[in-house]
């Protein structure tokens, strides 16, 4: 199971990088979203892939990773999703402004401040 998710994370990450490197701004946004999802998955599975085990203890049996999932990655991934949500919302607004101001979505034309 872990191997499958590792490959999935890798594919998402590669897709994200590919998107960021494209010339069109919309694809950059798609790339950022893919990257964000791949990292969220990575964080989520940092506690190991546990299927069908909730991160809740009943208070009687001693906590162990054979009966329950690690709750912390779940909390982390929630925070990461929230932050990613904010970032992506902001990025979409920003890129929209850039587009309406510069009248282009071609990142190759954004080189005037470079030199």
């Amino acid at each position: 199971m872990e191997a499958f998710y590792a490959i999935l994370i890798g594919i998402l990450f590669a897709g994200g990088i590919y998107g960021i490197l494209r010339r069109s701004m919309v694809r950059v946004i798609v790339g950022i979203i893919l990257l964000s999802q791949s990292i969220n998955l990575l964080v989520f599975f940092s506690g190991g892939a546990n299927r069908g085990k909730p991160a809740i203890m009943d208070g009687e049996t001693a906590p162990s990773f054979s009966t329950m999932a690690d709750p912390l990655p779940q909390a982390l991934v929630l925070t990461a999703i929230v932050i990613g949500f904010g970032l992506i919302a902001f990025v979409i607004v920003l890129f929209q402004r850039v587009f309406s101001r510069l009248q282009t979505d071609d990142t190759q034309e954004l080189f005037k401040t470079d030199s």
Binding site: G86, A89, F90, I92, V93, Q96
Partner: peptide, 10 residues
């Protein structure tokens, strides 16, 4: 507030 701000401005 944040979500609505983003949504309204879009």
């Amino acid at each position: 507030g944040f979500t609505l701000k983003v949504f309204f401005s879009l």
